[in-house]
Design a protein around this nucleic acid. Sequence first.
DNA 1: CTAGGACATGTCCTTAGGTACATATGAGAG
DNA 2: CTCTCATATGTACCTAAGGACATGTCCTAG
Lengths: 180, 180
Amino acid sequence: MSLRYGLLGLLAEGPASGYDLARRFQEMLGSVWPAQHPKIYSELNRMAGEGLIEVESEGPRRRKAYRITDAGLAAVRQWLTDGEVDHTMRLQPLLRSAFFWLMEPADLRAHLDREAAYYRGELEKYQAYAEAKDRGDFGDGPQTHSLRIAIEAAIRLYGALAEWAEWARDEDPPAGQRRR
Amino acid sequence: MSLRYGLLGLLAEGPASGYDLARRFQEMLGSVWPAQHPKIYSELNRMAGEGLIEVESEGPRRRKAYRITDAGLAAVRQWLTDGEVDHTMRLQPLLRSAFFWLMEPADLRAHLDREAAYYRGELEKYQAYAEAKDRGDFGDGPQTHSLRIAIEAAIRLYGALAEWAEWARDEDPPAGQRRR
DNA sequence: CTAGGACATGTCCTTAGGTACATATGAGAG
DNA sequence: CTCTCATATGTACCTAAGGACATGTCCTAG
């Protein structure tokens, strides 16, 4: 149900259409919780049926903007405070790492180089974002502050992963490594 | 298809039954790639049908041990070197963090305390594991070396998350915070 | 000798996630 | 005026994931 609450959380900032939500989800939450538009639209319809959100206005190009209801706001808040936190991680790159011994040393090195570059890239993206935010480019409402906290998490995570990949790349390759 | 390759990777170390694989997946990969036994058994059956693994022996209690075939070994190796890395993260705690502004400051503080404690706990678990490994408790084959790299990633990730949660907890709460 | 528990494999069913496809509409370029 | 592109919403369908339930088997404690 995380997508549901993610949408409610975004709607708590103000009315938005499914299209808006899809874009904002992608932009600001895409790296911690991917969501495609079909799922978003169907979830919005479900939530409208349950009274958690309601159609605020219908605009041009069939645009429907939704507004969160009191019930919806209460639902997100309850989820945030009482809902059990799901600590499940699903990190394919780490799953792969358990099987590095099956790779050729050269391939592994190349792989870790690419991984490190990827994480460095993400890290820089979020660092730039954080700097813009700290300069006040996005105002300083409570939402902005929360977003800054989320960005800080991304910075620390990608930083940790980048350093890990570089560390692993520079580690001695396993002694028992053998060619196929 | 990550589960598939995870199973093949484990089977590359030696024959195992579905039950074994479920336990080992849970133990050593559970925190980066959860897998329940129904999925494992059905995936094993599918892979047996495709010739990636084969039944090595049938033991007591209906136990069926599988062995990886040459085709299976080639498949994991190809996945490891040529397969596109999926960098998707699905971290509910970070999704939540974008909506901290909706929480009461006291609830948020309690939440971040629990989160920090959780991450510290995981961190210690993996640190202990790493120390045992560095002492040589598990031998020092190439698999062990890979596992050590995976554990190092877990240590760095949980360390980063623990510090993030503590940092966020001790941050000034957003100025615009308002009561319900 | 029997009851309970760990071992071991599976089915069933529901939901979540994701790709591909379909369609309508308004704005702007040429 | 028409073509194209971005906006905007959806359906259809497939696979992955996961909870609930069912069943068989061997061991051991009492």
